[in-house]
Design a protein around this nucleic acid. Structure first.
Length: 111
DNA sequence: ATGTTGACTTGGA
DNA sequence: GTCCAAGCCAACA
């Protein structure tokens, strides 16, 4: 943590997401201790392409497991394609077996 | 400095 | 179970 900005904190958590797993903005926000700033998590992702290493934003979806932010990627199919490449099945912008591939930082990182 | 927006979440009808 | 509305925090204009 140190003097990492809110954005950096989000980036680090997202980078900690294991391959083939996905998480939700709220989970990250809650991990940061600010559930209300769930929107900021996605907002931070907006600048994810400006930091390095690039954060796997494609592994971050909303609580429904829906690829809400896919439109913010280089291509509308970039996110889904990336997820499928990770081994995650996506149908109609909806992550299949979401609860199975769901990765909660609070739980997995054992806060 | 103030106001609005935003890749969300939860709660109530 | 589904739909509508309110809430919350931080960055951007």
């Amino acid at each position: 943590m140190d003097r990492a900005d809110f954005f950096e904190q989000v980036y680090q958590v997202v980078r900690l997401i294991p391959k083939g797993r996905v998480t939700s903005y709220g989970a990250i926000a809650q991990y940061l201790g600010t559930r209300g700033s769930s929107r900021m998590v996605g907002y931070a992702m907006n600048g994810s392409h400006t930091v390095q290493p690039p954060v796997p934003a494609h592994r971050v979806v909303n609580r429904q497991g829906l690829l809400t932010g896919k439109h913010h990627f280089a291509s509308a199919t970039a996110m889904q394609d990336a997820l499928e490449k990770e081994g995650i099945h996506v149908k109609d912008d909806q992550v299949q077996d979401f609860k199975t591939v769901f990765w909660d930082p609070n739980t997995e990182l054992t806060l």
